[in-house]
Write a protein that binds this DNA or RNA. Structure first.
Length: 344
DNA sequence: AAGACGGGGAG
DNA sequence: CTCCCAGTCTT
């Protein structure tokens, strides 16, 4: 496997050097996110925040803007908080012990193992979805990988197998194998360097492994949003709360609909109550946007309205020039809204 | 143990 | 439309 890895490993930006900070950033970005998606974000992020000090000193709004569209935004808020912690408590050097590194915000069991092994050569397991899939097949492990408790089983397997010579390559090879060969569906067993050692291949159970139960309960939320323009080429935006979904991102004023009554009227009431604004919205929404999250769906009716002048009454809101809207970090759903609004 | 937390690519 | 991705935190 190591021989295969050396020959076939992808040429990825975070593999160009051993800077623990860059390894760290890449691992956070790669959580639940594909390599191809991460690459351009990683390049831009490192350009903008080349060191722990740069990240620690940055404004959160700039950091969120650099993360805009990547999703799971608590990752980057935790990353910056942790960077500040490393700067203050560890003199700007990413700690190299399991205890210390695990205590950093946003660094769980996978990421600690990944950073320790890749950046510091410590033989610690880094068990992600790839590793569980690959090892469940090779070793014929029938634990349900959706259960949190299963991770320990795979960590134990890795401890028995890991190369003490090159833990970094070992962990990355396992993941690379999962990404390139041992894929979730139709794996390329004929190209697999460890085919002869693979129980599932020999037993014909490749398509049964890994065992993974599925969950799901998709909530639907109906919203109405307002693009409120002034007569001076401005528009009203607001900042989301510091906790929860899309925390601290910017968006257009919006309210959850009761399901009864007229959405436009409910939205006008919201603008009156929250902003003290008397806005006459257009009768019909100019766009209807559907946005699917992992755990819920938003259906947004988008209305437009104009006010003569807006004094931002709401403390988390701003009136910004239309050409400056894109300097703010928006969730993708509200980027869709702005895209539609601009094209009118 | 289960749910919250984004977004996009693949089949 | 479903699955799932180099997961972590909260409840």
């Amino acid at each position: 496997m190591l021989q295969w890895y050396k020959a076939e490993k992808r040429d990825l930006p975070w593999r160009k050097e051993r800077d623990p900070y860059k390894i760290w950033v890449s691992e956070i970005m790669l959580q639940q996110t594909r390599v191809d998606t991460v690459i351009p974000y990683f390049e831009r992020f490192i350009d903008q925040f080349p060191t722990i000090e740069a990240l620690a000193a940055a404004e959160e709004d700039k950091v969120l803007k650099a993360w805009e569209g990547l999703g799971y935004y608590s990752r980057v808020r935790n990353l910056q908080a942790a960077a500040r912690e490393v700067h203050e408590r560890y003199g700007g050097k990413v700690p190299n012990t399991l205890k210390e590194i695990s205590s950093l915000k946003g660094v769980g069991p996978y990421t600690s193992g990944a950073i320790l092994s890749i950046a510091y050569g410590v033989p610690e397991p880094a068990v992600d979805g790839n590793v569980m899939r690959v090892l469940s097949r090779i070793l014929s492990i029938w634990e349900d990988i959706a259960k949190p408790s299963s991770r320990k089983v795979f960590e134990e397997a890795v401890r028995q197998l890991i190369s003490t010579e090159d833990p970094s390559s070992f962990n990355q090879a396992l993941m690379e194998l999962g990404a390139l060969i041992c894929t979730p569906s139709s794996p390329s067993c004929l190209l697999c360097p460890v085919r002869e050692h693979c129980s599932a291949f020999h037993e014909g159970t490749i398509n049964e492994l890994p065992v993974k139960t599925k969950k799901k309960t998709m909530r639907h939320v109906h919203l109405a949003a307002a693009v409120v323009k002034t007569e001076k080429e401005e528009v009203i935006i607001q900042k989301r709360p510091p906790e929860g979904l899309l925390a601290n991102l910017w968006e257009f004023p919006n309210t959850e609909l009761s399901g009864m009554g007229n959405p436009r009227v409910e939205l006008e009431l919201f603008l009156k109550r929250e902003y003290g604004l008397d806005v006459q919205l257009e009768a019909e929404p100019f766009a209807k946007i559907q946005h699917v999250f992992s755990h819920l769906t938003w259906d947004i009716d988008v209305y437009e309205g104009t006010v003569s002048s807006a004094i931002p009454k709401k403390e988390n809101s701003r009136v910004v020039k239309t050409e400056e809207v894109e300097e703010y970090a928006f969730s993708v759903s509200h980027q869709k809204i702005w895209k539609k609004a601009k094209g009118r």
